[in-house]
Amino acid sequence: MQADSSSYERELAQSPSLAVVRDIARWWRAYQLERYCLITSGLLQVQGDFEAAVADFYETTQNVPAWIEDAGDAFLRFIARRPDPVAASLAEFEAALIAARKGELMSGRVIDWNVHPYEVLRTALSQKMANEWTPGRFQTLVSSNIDGYFTVFEMN
């Protein structure tokens, strides 16, 4: 039985269709996350890091939920923990924005930024990399109770 299983594994590993199946899963994961986390995905795409980030997320996260709302929130938490502070702020911001739009963030959430949030949002949504973002100390307050769901404060 052991020998049979390993010969099947060898056959599977050599099968060209295995790569196709992997691509389908990769494509589907990226497509769903891209639609759910539009802004963060936009920034990662401009930075050329989106596909690697999705692959990394699925490789390092146990039991990623099937529901895109749950998987998407987990992906944003994952990006928020990565070393890039701008992408981390944006992921935290987008998670808060999604919750605010669903009416689930009445108390509000504050997110710190080390560059101007509007410039990052413009980059992510236009898919055009800015020359550089204006550095500084900024905060966004995100809440279901705010018109447009967020407001930006410059802290300097």
Binding site: V21, I24, W28, N63, A66
Partner: peptide
């Protein structure tokens, strides 16, 4: 099946 050991395959086999 779309799940193996609780992990979602994101495809069906």
């Amino acid at each position: 099946y779309v799940k193996v050991g609780g992990d979602n395959l994101n495809t069906m086999l």
